[in-house]
Design a protein around this nucleic acid. Sequence first.
DNA 1: GATTTGATTCTCT
DNA 2: GAGAATCAAATCC
Length: 202
Amino acid sequence: MRSQLAQPATEVAPLLLGARLTSVVGPGTVSVEITEVEAYEGEADPASHAWRGPTARNAVMFGPAGHLYVYRSHGLHWCLNVVTGGVGTATAVLLRAGRVVEGDEIARLRRGTHLPSSRLARGPGCLAQALGATGALDGADLLTGAGPIRLTMPETPPGETARGPRVGVSRAADVPLRWWIAGDPTVSAYRRSPRAPAPAAD
DNA sequence: GATTTGATTCTCT
DNA sequence: GAGAATCAAATCC
């Protein structure tokens, strides 16, 4: 499976739709089925953290595929990425949303309120929170099966998928590197970054 | 060394 | 629809 992930993020991203991410941190097991992802193409992608080259924060992205890259956004939220490509290639796939398929009660507990199931993991920060994932998991190997968090590729195609521009990025905002499962209620609504330049007129 | 921004989300108007 | 909350890393002087 690791070889499957050792491809450019743009190749791996659609493959991750329908994949299952399972965390066993804290009080119990929570599994989510990925419904929305975004690809980041490393140093060639101005929207990627790796755009300026290797740093202490993004070091994991330059490592081997199949590891988890976790970073904090706005000081509040944790965001989860699957590292793809080979060593030295800083491509990664951001996990934006998912559907809780196991550990529903635990996820609901972490999210704090009695939300409908479709909102437990809608959005990158919410997904991480539902799984109990934090910066402590940065660099974790998703494929050993022994770690606190692991990834299982889908056995069957997820059905109809859609593709469009990435959410919230201020650079390269119009590049269609986001994939999601069409019609899924857990997919977050598209919101353009307030800092992004106006979209190119037709 | 100080300043600014960010792959966000929630709440109030 | 707009603004606040809040930490760290990158950038600038």
